[in-house]
Amino acid sequence: MFNRLLRRLVILPGYIANYGYTDGSGDYYIIVDTDKCDGCGKCVEACPQDILEIITDDYDDLVVTVKEEHSKNLKYVCAPCKPVSGPVELKCQIACPSGAITHSW
């Protein structure tokens, strides 16, 4: 908590985590702005596929992360939430009070 406050006060660059991969068929990423994320866990509850979890990162902040086994198959686990017709706001994004989560499309 103190770390995060300090980071905001001295305006250090944000810490952006990109989970996922690129393969022959495209980009599949979940992007978390860990400065905005306060580890409240609302997205973890909202995700119908149960792919998110809250961890303490290497710099002792509580943040959301994509479970390791799922960062390798985002294309498949996130598919049920993503219509082919194009980007919509996803359940995890709606649940997040600070707008810390973005998805690649």
């Binding site: 250090l12 660059p13 944000g14 810490y15 952006i16 985590a17 990109n18 989970y19 996922g20 991969y21 690129t22 393969d23 022959g24 990423y29 290497d58 710099y59 960062s71 390798k72 198959n73």
Partner: peptide, 18 residues
């Protein structure tokens, strides 16, 4: 990373062997 070697952004591609 910043001047102290602290990560500010990362991207991991951990599925495809290419």
């Amino acid at each position: 990373c910043d001047e102290r070697g602290k990560v500010t952004q990362f991207l991991m591609n951990d599925k495809c062997a290419a």
